[in-house]
């Protein structure tokens, strides 16, 4: 049981690495203008996070909208 769980986690991270590398070079600048001229150090630093959260970054990469913060004041704001 534990072996299967660890295998699934390893597979998940392997897929994540394959998605994270193209993401830091192409996807990040699409989802965030601050990443357009991001340094090599920045690209290197976000690889582990991108590999761990790949379903989320894939969704952002394929989508259009930049995420907006959701808070009580932002929800209650006049339209």
């Amino acid at each position: 049981m534990i072996e299967i769980g660890l295998g699934i986690i390893a597979l998940y991270l392997l897929v994540g690495i394959f998605i994270a590398i193209p993401f830091v070079f192409a996807g990040a600048k699409k989802v965030d203008p601050g990443a357009v001229e991001g340094t090599w150090g920045f690209k290197l630093l976000i690889i582990p996070g991108a590999a761990a959260l790949w379903p989320l970054i894939l969704k952002r990469w394929m989508g259009k909208a930049h995420p907006t913060e959701c808070s009580a004041h932002r929800r209650a704001a006049r339209r």
Partner: peptide
């Protein structure tokens, strides 16, 4: 702790949103 360290850059704050 890995998840936290990996998402500690401001890029993640902006793209996950602060909450």
């Amino acid at each position: 702790l890995f998840l936290m360290a990996a998402t500690s850059h401001d890029f993640w704050l902006a793209n996950l949103t602060a909450p």
